[in-house]
Write a protein that binds this DNA or RNA. Structure first.
Length: 634
RNA sequence: GCCGAUGUAGCUCAAUGGUAGAGCAAUUGAUUUGUAAUCAAUAGGUUGGGGGUUCAAUUCCCUUCAUCGGCUCCA
């Protein structure tokens, strides 16, 4: 009897008896065997020393694949736990998974880990790497496992074990003197970890629930080479420079003032100009796509929020009411009830639908103090909100249009990569099953029809309807949610929304709640970080800086400014008595896309010398060519 | 909210119990400059707020506010 092992390239290797994944790898190439982290046999991740006893499909994972990275980091987490247990035996271990970048491990101990302790732990890890302990898997019964961890007094492991069905195979992994309950797989030995760095500590609740005990978490990362670690640390440094909060200070875009209040944004002239340009474009596009713009108040009577249900399910995010003439008014956390009120101000025939109401609606939500973050998470923000009210027959077309519209708009701002999620019905939802199904299928159909890659988040929808979320990936690989397209089966019923059908009887319309940018604040922050502050020309508050070399060119320079401004180019002039290098440096640091340098030569020939941000001197040319060059970047 | 760190001039940062400093920015003056920083002078502070210990607090303690990093990712 022979065993056939098929590899991803289509080739098949035949063996007379059972072989390990590592043996197969070694046969292919010693380098692969060295780089291999784990194996995938018939879709199941296993250790490299896993014995293959029947015909199988085999994939070998290195650090270059996602499963490979995950296993590598997970094994490093075990290594860290080993180091911690050696240094601080009284600490109890809990869990330590791999995450998107690196890993963490949560420990139960009275005091947090200090920076000095982190260094000690890292040093111990390096010693353990040198010792090159192998990770060995052992399968055992639940009772045996309970016995082992009870003796070690590892109560969290016992808690985890207690939840595993008795019939499941339990496995432990041991390296050196450290044993951990773990499904695996793992790398073959600690020596495979070449570069490791512990990054930060933090508090984290046991199982993420704030009712549970707070544990102490250590985050870290590891790589198969020092070079990769150095590159990763440089990448973190780069991320810091791109942080929208830093860019906002450098470019004077916005600030958040202690006296005004946390999470409340002050838009400075430069930031406000960019915002204005975003909003103007947004409005124009919406009008072009058949939306009607509306404006609604910032507060509404408690009755409205009772009807909408927000006082029931959203109260903890709402601010305390203010009393006006013995009536409670709430500042709005959402725009929907107002848009519905506009819809309901008139009777509607099916002939009028779809109705698309759009508003840049500013809302206020209570966010817990610990979660505020620059413009990404604030307490007062403006949603680019719209509500589409349509008949069931129109639903498909509307969803289809929405997805196209959203992606087109995001692309216009320079974004290229998107992550799309379809979230389906959660438990405890409201609305009819057939409505949910119809809406979910409509969303799915549109995604399929447009050939878009998407992930399904089963049960991840809002309680009132299924949704599509589009997240933007920035240059550093971080994802930010922008677009959300959500069906709502709650509010139309609560507000008793209707239209008169062709049959002359009232019908309940479908309502789609959507935001393309998400919120202007978050979108602005994402945009800044994505472009590293080098915004597309059409969004720059100052597009051209005119730089006269000496005061003798002031008149010529001022005329130039006037001409550029007349053409609609946002132009400033730097008349300070500084040297040209100084003024250029200043304009470069402010990330102004174009500089017009004018001296006596330019004046004599009626020329300008153009310089482009980050590119440099573009040479002398006449005015029209300069404008043409600038506009070519529009 | 919880855990930890931080809070000194507009910005970036010094000063470990004994009169709070620097660079950049700002203001003034000189310089009129050719592609990423000209020189000099001046001004700028209740060291986040409040309380305490001390002869003396930016420094030690308490409290409060804010900022930063975390708090879903199943052994």
């Amino acid at each position: 009897m022979s065993i056939n092992i098929s590899l991803p390239d289509g080739s098949i290797k035949t063996y007379a008896k059972a072989v390990t994944a590592l043996e197969v790898a070694t046969e292919i190439s010693p380098r692969l065997a060295d780089a291999a982290i784990c194996a995938e046999v018939n879709g199941k991740l296993v250790d490299l020393d896993h014995l293959i006893e029947a015909d199988s499909k085999l994939v070998l994972h290195t650090f270059k694949t996602e499963p490979g990275q995950e296993v590598y980091w997970h094994s490093t987490a075990h290594l860290m736990a080993q180091a911690v247990k050696q240094l601080y035996p009284e600490v109890k271990v809990t869990i330590g998974p791999a995450i998107e970048f690196g890993f963490y491990y949560d420990f139960d101990r009275d005091t947090p880990f200090t920076d000095d302790e982190l260094i000690k732990i890292e040093d111990r890890m390096k010693e353990l790497i040198k010792a090159n302990h192998s990770y060995s898997r052992r399968e055992l019964s639940k009772a045996e496992a309970m016995d082992i961890f009870a003796k070690m007094n590892e109560s969290y492991k016992l808690e985890i074990l207690a939840e595993i069905p008795d019939t499941d195979v339990i496995s432990t992994y041991t390296q050196g003197d450290f044993i951990d309950l773990c499904r695996g797989p793992h790398i073959s030995s600690t020596g495979k970890i070449k570069a490791v760095k512990l990054l930060k500590t933090s508090g984290a609740y046991w199982r993420g629930d704030e009712k549970n005990k707070m544990l102490h978490r250590i985050y870290g990362i590891s790589f198969p080479s020092n070079k990769e670690l150095t590159e990763y640390l440089a990448f973190l440094e780069e991320a810091k420079n791109r942080d929208h909060r830093k860019l906002a200070r450098d470019l004077d875009l916005f600030s958040i003032n202690d006296e005004v209040g946390p999470g409340l944004v002050l838009w400075h002239p430069n930031g406000a100009m960019i915002r204005h340009l975003i909003e103007a474009y947004w409005k124009e596009e919406h009008l072009r796509k058949g939306y009607k713009l509306v404006y609604t108040p910032h507060v509404g009577r408690s009755k409205l929020w009772e009807t909408s249900g927000h006082l029931g399910f959203y109260k903890e995010n709402m601010y305390a009411p203010m009393e006006i003439e013995e009536q409670d008014y709430y500042i709005k956390p959402m725009n929907c009830p107002f848009h519905i009120a506009i819809y309901k101000a008139n009777h509607h025939s099916y002939r009028e639908l779809p109705i698309r109401l759009a508003e840049l609606g500013t809302v206020y939500r209570y966010e817990r103090s610990g979660v505020l973050h620059g413009l990404m998470r604030v307490r007062g923000f403006t949603q680019d909100d719209a509500h589409i009210i349509c008949t069931p027959e129109q639903m498909d077309t509307e969803v289809d249009k929405l997805i196209t519209f959203s992606l087109d708009m995001l692309k216009h701002f320079g974004f290229k990569e998107f992550m799309i999620y379809l979230s389906t019905r959660p438990e405890g939802s409201v609305g009819e099953a057939e409505d949910w199904d119809a809406a979910t299928e409509s969303l799915r159909r549109s995604l399929e029809k447009q050939g878009l890659d998407y992930k399904v988040d089963e049960g991840g929808g809002a309680f009132y309807g299924p949704k599509i979320d589009i997240k933007i990936k920035d240059a550093l690989g971080r994802a930010w949610q922008c677009t959300t397209i959500q069906f709502d089966f709650n509010l139309p019923a609560r507000f008793n929304m209707e239209y008169i059908g062709a049959d002359n009887t009232p019908h309940r319309p479908y309502m789609i709640h959507r935001a393309v940018l998400g919120s202007v604040e978050r979108f602005f922050a994402t945009l800044l970080e994505y472009h590293s502050g080098n915004l597309p020309l059409w969004l720059c508050p100052t597009q051209v800086m005119v730089i006269p070399i000496t005061d003798n060119q002031l008149e010529y320079a001022n005329k130039l400014v006037e001409k550029l401004q007349l053409l609609g180019l946002r132009t400033e002039i730097d008349t300070r008595g500084e040297k040209i290098g100084y003024k250029i440096r200043d304009a470069e640091l402010k990330k102004i896309p174009f500089m017009c340098v004018v001296g006596k030569n330019e004046e004599a020939n009626n020329f300008v010398t153009l310089r482009q941000h980050t590119i440099g001197d573009l040479g002398s040319m006449d005015f029209d060519d300069a404008v043409k060059t600038i506009r070519s970047h529009q």
